[in-house]
Design a protein around this nucleic acid. Structure first.
Lengths: 236, 236
DNA sequence: TACACAAAGAGTGTATACAATCTAGAATTC
DNA sequence: GAATTCTAGATTGTATACACTCTTTGTGTA
């Protein structure tokens, strides 16, 4: 038999298992605001922490830079990304184009199973929030939006929204105005209600309003840039 | 003086110059259909061809896999991506959500300089087509769409569209029906006319129709999978 | 003859070593 | 005393070497 006892279960498709582990860990840490924006991510340090070689760390950092979560500067190293006010606005403009109509599509394809999955998402989010893990809650809240696109059977759009929600949660972690009460629960429940009724119009409108609510709950006036590129300007 | 003769010009921001070069070269080759979908991209071979180490090649391949241009399989290597019929549809659905309204925004912000840039794009595309470089023409045609998002002052959306057009040109290379006459020129000129008149409504409609035209010019019925995973099915 | 097993070969995954670049601190000069 | 240059340390960029996995081919047996 080919399937003798030696095969490790579910060691399937993803290339570079170790690198993916480091990437996931760093991604969590960034989203949960453990690593403040601008933090230097030294390759040597990380390789010691995770017990892997710098090769692996570099690979993970490169992936994260593609996700726009870290900023790679030539011969300088990797830094936790600092989304600007402008980027913050643009991310939500992009989401405003994609998500409402995707929610509309999702409503048409909604199944009891899909609704159950969405409800579990909200529940998990609530649990995380109650446990004080606001970073994790933020991440789950984003995944809720991704899940809607998946239900709409739009893999590509789902992956775009995944990128955007990842950046969003970083943006929220930086620019969120009121510390308490993520009013998300309200909107997410309203969305689920619309989905249950297969009411695409409502879902679309609720999603549109929901995104605007998040955007307006951000404090995007101040510019929290400590010193932009002082050296680059004065250095010449 | 700090600015003595030693500084190489424009050696600015991008990390890993060598890796970026390999990535660009491979990206071109894939877009221009030099490397057919499914082609194995062996690290050793590429490192010999480009005269760099496998480290660089790996880095480039990882980047390309993030752009969905190559498919990385664990312990198997890298292969030129083979977009499925379904992915093809989804890419154009995503573009349909993003581009028409972005064209609308662009019309409002249009300047003579921006129009000149768009016209040069079309011109370059025409030149490439006349020279028989249909792959390059395809790439330029995609860049035209990206440029519109840039003019609309939407960096994030522009980068999303860049991803989608990259995959689109791969899709077109595979599924395009009629070999000759990319009817793009027509639509692109019509778009420029609408932009010149700052007519957002028209631009939005033309873009919507343009994307539908491209989609309907694809032959998405046949499945050009030679042998998908013959072994995986028959091997057990 | 056909199937199963095994060994060799090829190719990817990872670690380490070396080279180039940048940063920071100390010494020297004006 | 301040500024600039030089030197040393640290960090990133790249190459190479080794380990592990998968594929393939050859051989033996039913």
């Amino acid at each position: 038999m080919k399937t003798s006892g030696k095969n490790v279960p579910e060691r399937g498709r993803e290339p570079q298992r170790a690198s993916a582990r480091v990437e996931a860990s760093l991604s969590s840490a960034i989203h949960e605001h453990m690593l403040p924006p601008g933090t230097k991510l030294s390759e040597g340090e990380l390789s010691e922490i995770y017990g892997v070689s710098r090769t692996i760390v570099r690979s993970a950092l490169q992936s994260l830079s593609h996700s726009q979560l870290v900023d790679l500067k030539a011969n300088r190293g990797a830094f936790v990304a600092q989304p600007t006010v402008r980027e913050a606005r643009e991310v939500f403009e992009a989401r405003a184009l994609l998500e409402p109509r995707t929610a509309h599509s999702a409503a048409a394809r909604m199944t009891p199973d899909a609704i159950a999955r969405l409800e579990r998402h909200v529940e998990d989010e609530h649990t995380a929030l109650a446990a004080g893990e606001s970073g994790r809650a933020l991440h789950l809240s984003g995944q809720f939006h991704v899940e809607i696109a998946r239900i709409a059977d739009q893999t590509i759009i789902a992956s775009l929204i995944e990128q955007l929600t990842a950046r969003s949660s970083l943006i929220i972690a930086i620019y969120w105005r009121k510390q308490n009460a993520l009013c998300e629960k309200q909107a997410h429940h309203a969305l689920i209600d619309a989905f249950r009724a297969k009411n695409g119009e409502d879902a679309e409108e609720i999603m549109k309003g929901h995104l605007l609510d998040i955007l307006s709950a951000l404090d995007l006036r101040e510019r929290p840039r400590p010193e932009p590129e002082l050296k680059a300007i004065l250095g010449r």
